[in-house]
């Protein structure tokens, strides 16, 4: 589904990604972990097409298409979904209106007929149950005045509506208490299928208790320096990141 090959990116003059290699297949859950500033969120943003980052090298193939060649909205229409670490508050635009526009623009991109109001109503009702989100929240301006938990639930609700092939969860656990975390994780798990894949970007292991990864990768200094299974996440929880940093830094010195 997704093949990242030697991806490099910078913001301004600062190189952040220095050669990322990663392959994600349908049905898989990948966790990307790493200390603060290692480039985790940058990777998520670059995959979604944020313009602030300049891709300086490498390639990203998504179902045979050059992802880096597509505008953010085209990537979304191809099936990429980024759940934001900090969902943006947009006064004056209701969540439902926003999502209707998104769904119909994506359908248009795919050459499908737009959904009408009744179809939306039915679909929204069904998807709302995934994350226990309330109708009144959806009538309000997008994320405006939402609590941290409401914002994250809204992200997963949007994910349920848009049914992406690849969901990238950027620090979805940040700012959530344990109950909210469980609701969000359950929503993500319900949406899992053999045809889609998930990349979970997180600093802490606790989210991975609920969204169990098939693979865990550790990002440090702009590279994936260690990959393993879910046991690696548990080891990181126990030992922290320092031992990995030390390993990498020692290798750099000797090189």
């Amino acid at each position: 589904m997704l093949k990242i090959n030697n991806l490099q990116a910078k913001i301004g003059e600062k190189e952040i990604l220095k050669g990322i290699n990663l392959e994600v297949k349908a049905g898989e859950v990948h966790a990307i972990m790493g200390p603060n500033g290692s480039g985790k969120s940058t990777l998520a943003s670059v995959l979604a097409g944020r313009e602030d980052y300049e891709v300086t090298g490498g390639s990203v193939d998504f179902f045979g298409k050059d992802l880096l060649d597509l505008a953010p909205e085209e990537r979304a229409a191809e099936g990429i979904f980024l759940a934001f670490q900090y969902p943006v508050e947009i006064p004056g635009v209701s969540t439902t209106n926003f999502l209707k526009t998104a769904v119909n623009e994506i359908r248009k991109y795919r050459g499908e007929e737009p959904l009408d109001a009744v179809q939306f109503l039915k679909m929204f009702k069904q998807k709302m149950s995934y994350v226990n989100i309330d109708q009144s929240l959806l009538n309000r301006a997008l994320n405006e005045g939402f609590s941290g938990g409401e914002k994250k639930r809204n992200e997963i609700f949007q994910m349920a509506v848009l049914e992406p092939k690849l969901a990238i969860l950027d620090e979805t656990d940040s700012g959530l208490d344990i109950d909210a975390l469980r609701i969000v994780a359950e929503g993500v798990n319900k949406l899992k299928s053999p045809d889609n894949a998930t990349i979970v970007v997180t600093h802490y292991q606790r989210l991975l208790d609920y969204i169990v990864p098939d693979y865990v990768h550790v990002l440090y200094k702009g590279r994936i320096v260690k990959s393993g299974t879910k046991e690696l996440a548990l080891e990181l929880e126990e030992r922290g990141y320092d031992w990995i940093k030390a390993e990498v830094d020692a290798a750099e010195v000797s090189a």
Partner: peptide
């Protein structure tokens, strides 16, 4: 960017923001 990441074209996103 948030709107584009949900599949809304840049022009539509701008229009929605202006209208809002």
């Amino acid at each position: 960017f948030y709107m584009q990441a949900r599949g809304i074209s840049k022009d539509s996103a701008r229009a929605l923001l202006m209208l809002a």
